[in-house]
Amino acid sequence: MELNLEEGKHIYDECSTLILPALSIGNVGQLAVDLLIASTKAERIGYLDDPNVLPCVGNDAYTPTPQGDLALPLEAYESPSNALTLIQQRSPVVKGMMVEFAKNLADFAVACGKKHIVILSSLDFGRWQTIDMSSGLQIYYLSNAKVDGADDNCEKLGFKRMKEYDPTQKLWKYLNDLAEGNATEEDISSLEDDLGEEDYYPSLPFAAMFSCFKAKGLKVTCLLCYCSEGDNISDAFHLAEAACNLVGQSPESFKGNEGGRWVIPFSWQSVYGPPPDMSLF
């Protein structure tokens, strides 16, 4: 993975926390990163080139009057005033190459001196076993602070530990061995005939990323919410707010925001296409 810096841009040493999405159902992680980039007024410093990500191109996602800047599959943004680096991923990883992609991301994070990695992603609402909406939408987490995935700070913030995480379970253990170089991807063939419901979570992109960042000795926290396909903008707000709480930030502290409000990304105006032609009715 190679970082191609834009002219006159550089990596800020003070941006020691990296926030990025792991693609999943509803694209909530990507939407949350969109919201954070727009609200922190983060500047794009360049783009990442990785052979494991499918190519795509689009118009500027954050500026209403584009200057000819194109949006690319992997972009790096930095907000020095909030000590944050943000990576936005706009296209999926080539099938079967998720672990290689995660390894490349981990190498990039180490090379850039990142200390804390925050992964934002979503889980299938249809697999939620213990539904409790008494306190609103729940944020679940997975951390490498403790062996069982628990983290005292996340507990204080009211997040729920992802109880489905079991480092001794075969697929989680395989991911860990793969990330540490103690297994090969060909070894998965011996597991494929014996995969069950418990293998859903370690089969998702966030699990590969978690394992690879952890293998590099980095502090890593996954923030997750359950959702379904559809309009998940409200979930994105909730996940972005959780990320802010985790890193000690808030919309009120974002430089340049009037009244401490979230800034809606310009691209969201067309996220579900243009409004219907009312003459049809």
Rank of each mutant, 00 (worst) to 15 (best):
4 N>S: 12
276 P>A: 05
44 R>N: 10
141 Y>V: 05
216 K>E: 07
216 K>I: 04
107 D>M: 04
227 C>G: 03
274 P>W: 11
113 G>F: 05
17 T>F: 01
76 A>I: 12
126 G>S: 10
143 S>A: 10
93 V>P: 06
91 S>V: 03
15 C>D: 03
139 I>D: 00
232 N>Y: 04
193 D>M: 10
28 V>N: 00
65 T>G: 00
25 I>Y: 02
121 S>R: 04
161 R>F: 10
233 I>H: 02
32 A>M: 06
164 E>V: 06
69 D>E: 15
55 P>H: 07
27 N>D: 10
228 S>G: 09
203 S>W: 13
132 D>K: 03
207 A>K: 04
127 R>K: 09
79 S>W: 11
75 E>W: 10
195 L>Y: 08
70 L>F: 15
247 V>N: 04
236 A>W: 06
224 L>A: 00
166 D>Q: 07
181 G>D: 01
67 Q>K: 15
95 K>W: 12
135 S>D: 13
166 D>K: 10
36 L>T: 11
183 A>R: 08
217 G>L: 02
179 A>Y: 09
170 K>I: 09
42 A>T: 11
131 I>T: 04
143 S>M: 09
202 P>I: 07
92 P>E: 10
18 L>G: 07
39 S>A: 06
109 A>T: 00
159 F>P: 01
184 T>K: 13
154 C>L: 06
46 G>N: 06
119 I>N: 02
189 S>C: 02
221 T>S: 11
243 A>F: 08
228 S>I: 09
155 E>F: 10
161 R>Q: 14
95 K>L: 14
23 L>Q: 14
102 A>Y: 12
162 M>T: 14
149 G>E: 12
127 R>M: 02
246 L>R: 09
32 A>C: 03
